[in-house]
Design a protein around this nucleic acid. Structure first.
Lengths: 118, 118
DNA sequence: ATCCGTAATATACCGATGGGAATAACGATG
DNA sequence: CATCGTTATTCCCATCGGTATATTACGGAT
């Protein structure tokens, strides 16, 4: 027995849905969509996470451009200065991603048990 | 029908095995291990891919530190200046990762068929 | 007409990551 | 004991994503 330390290993992964222009939906993007749904604006959603408005705006723009129908509808000016709200396609996108994500997590947890390392 | 463009979506992901200090095995690391096995040195392995020796060395160091038994044995000086060779644990690590990787690819391909987006 | 908070956009900066070059140690071989 | 190609290690630099900051456009409410 010359075993000094015994490492334990975890199987980890990232999951995302790709469109024609790269990433369409990923974990952070979907959380952002949810926050937009809760707060009613991109800026409030960005503040609620640890994300800059610039970054959040780019993500929303990227998702809208790659979606067959926009996931977020934005309005500028007006009461409260404007805002943003989820579309039906947006809600559907969230559900679709979480569904795949749950399956993915389950796969990882299951597959992790079979790891055999020396 | 107001459908302008019809995006098709792909389910993509990354997979890696984590130890106590972060990533232990990933796609690039395992390819590097294989190349070391083929070429007999870290530097030749690095040259054979598009990787700097500095980077390759750090990856090998990280893997060795996190493995219960080293994955690469290195020798300095001597005929040919030294070299590096895979250990049994290294070969095992490669096999373990590719096995998980294949399953993971199969999972992604299968799960992709179930994506439903608007 | 003014105010307000948001969308929209450009610019400058910052921090991490990896690359390249440079240097030293190493040890069998001739 | 000089050579040689590798391991090992330390600098500095280019690149790149994201942050912070600043500015403009917008339009309903007062």
């Amino acid at each position: 027995m010359t075993q000094t330390s015994t490492e334990t290993y975890r199987l980890k992964g990232r999951l995302w849905i790709e469109g024609s222009e790269g990433t369409f939906l990923g974990y952070g993007r979907v959380v952002l969509l949810e926050r937009i749904g809760e707060h009613g604006s991109i800026s409030a959603a960005a503040r609620s996470m640890e994300m800059s408005y610039r970054h959040a705006w780019k993500l929303v723009d990227s998702m809208n451009q790659q979606s067959n129908t926009p996931v977020v509808e934005k309005s500028t000016g007006g009461k409260g200065g404007g805002g943003a709200r989820l579309t039906e396609a947006g809600k559907q996108a969230i559900a679709t991603f979480w569904s795949a994500y749950r399956d993915y997590k389950a796969f990882l947890a299951q597959r992790e048990k079979q790891l055999e390392l020396l």
